[in-house]
Amino acid sequence: MGLTKTEFFTESQNKTAMLLKALGHPARVAIIEHLLKVRTCICGDLVNELPLAQATVSQHLKELKSAGIIKGSVEGAAVCYCLDESAFEVLAAYFSGVISGVKSQKSNCC
């Protein structure tokens, strides 16, 4: 596998890319949308909501948690998941800057 050369980019660029990569699957987007509706839930609730096997849902949760998009806390025998606001603050700042930059361009580029 080739080198990604992430050391050549800023910490902010690497963090943003990591968050966006974790969001790059429709199942993960669906998980976030579900968590927005219900605030917190356990894996079993998501299995009932999504057309995916429990192991697949668990893998998607692992990716989202690893990226810092969701948090999990142990409640009895289950893990209760919720969104991590700090990840969305990073994404909001990034997209706010992108949108401002696009809107400030006066010329037609292509």
Rank of each mutant, 00 (worst) to 15 (best):
M1L: 11
M1S: 13
T4Q: 04
T4W: 05
T6A: 08
E7H: 11
E7V: 11
F9T: 10
T10A: 07
T10N: 06
E11L: 10
S12Q: 14
S12D: 15
Q13R: 04
Q13K: 08
K15W: 00
T16M: 02
T16Q: 15
M18E: 13
L19F: 01
L20E: 09
L20D: 09
L20R: 12
K21R: 01
K21H: 07
K21M: 09
A22E: 02
L23F: 10
H25V: 01
P26F: 02
P26A: 04
R28I: 03
I32W: 02
E33S: 13
E33Y: 09
H34Y: 14
H34V: 06
L36Q: 09
K37H: 12
K37C: 11
V38S: 00
V38D: 02
V38Y: 03
G44Q: 10
G44N: 12
D45T: 05
L46G: 00
V47H: 12
E49H: 09
E49C: 08
E49A: 15
A53C: 08
A53G: 15
A55E: 08
A55Q: 06
T56A: 02
L64W: 07
K65E: 13
K65G: 11
S66T: 12
A67R: 00
G68K: 09
G68A: 01
I70A: 14
K71C: 10
S73Q: 07
V74T: 13
A78Y: 00
V79Y: 06
C80R: 09
Y81M: 06
L83K: 11
E85P: 04
E85Q: 00
E85H: 08
S86C: 00
S86A: 07
F88M: 01
E89L: 03
E89P: 00
L91Y: 09
A92Y: 14
A92Q: 15
A93E: 10
F95I: 01
S96E: 06
G97N: 01
G97P: 04
G97W: 09
G97K: 09
V98N: 00
V98W: 05
I99R: 04
S100K: 06
V102H: 07
K103G: 08
Q105C: 12
Q105V: 13
N108A: 05
N108R: 10
C110H: 06
